[in-house]
């Protein structure tokens, strides 16, 4: 009944035997102990469980673990380049006060990553649209929106610095 899946999470190779009814969310949280990805609703409605699979943001609560065989997953734990550095998105979330209880944060950051990968200089409306599937009960979203535009700036600047070098 169990299926063997081989997949990458945050660059690390994993091999797991999973039952088909196990969601990616459970596999990450329970089997791999990557608990940064949250479960806020379990039915695709809140965005807290968002991860990136092969470059696209998806709801890990609706994704069957078996279906990521051979794929590459990025979770919030894979955002920061190293132990003591933060990703510009994380940096901006911290700086702008975009984090209160923090339960929506991982999903918001992954949505931001997806957005900025596809649209490096989003305007405010585009940022808000990028978060349309993400609920937050604490912040009223304003500091999150601000964080994402701050992150966009930093990412653009570091991009152009890299290009200059």
């Amino acid at each position: 009944m169990k299926h063997r899946i081989n997949f990458k999470v945050n660059g690390d190779e994993y091999s797991l035997a999973v039952e088909p009814w196990k969601t990616l969310n459970e596999a990450l949280r329970e089997d791999l102990n990557l608990t940064g990805t949250k479960l806020g609703c379990g039915t695709g409605d809140c965005g807290a469980c968002t991860v990136i699979v092969d470059g696209k943001s998806v709801s890990s609560c609706l994704t069957l673990a078996v279906s990521v065989d051979g794929k590459s997953v990025t979770t919030v734990e894979g955002l920061a380049p190293s132990g003591d550095e933060l990703h510009p998105i994380q940096e901006a979330f911290v700086k702008t006060g975009a984090i209160q209880c923090g339960f929506c944060t991982a999903g918001m950051e992954m949505a931001a990553l997806h957005l900025l990968n596809h649209n490096p200089s989003p305007n405010e409306a585009e940022i808000r649209a990028g978060l349309s599937g993400h609920l937050c009960r604490c912040t009223g979203y304003s500091q999150i929106v601000e964080a994402i535009s701050v992150a966009a700036e930093t990412m653009k600047n570091s991009q152009s610095e890299e290009e200059e070098q």
Partner: peptide, 8 residues
């Protein structure tokens, strides 16, 4: 839906 659901 939303971005994630449209991606799936």
């Amino acid at each position: 839906a939303n971005i994630e659901v449209r991606n799936m």
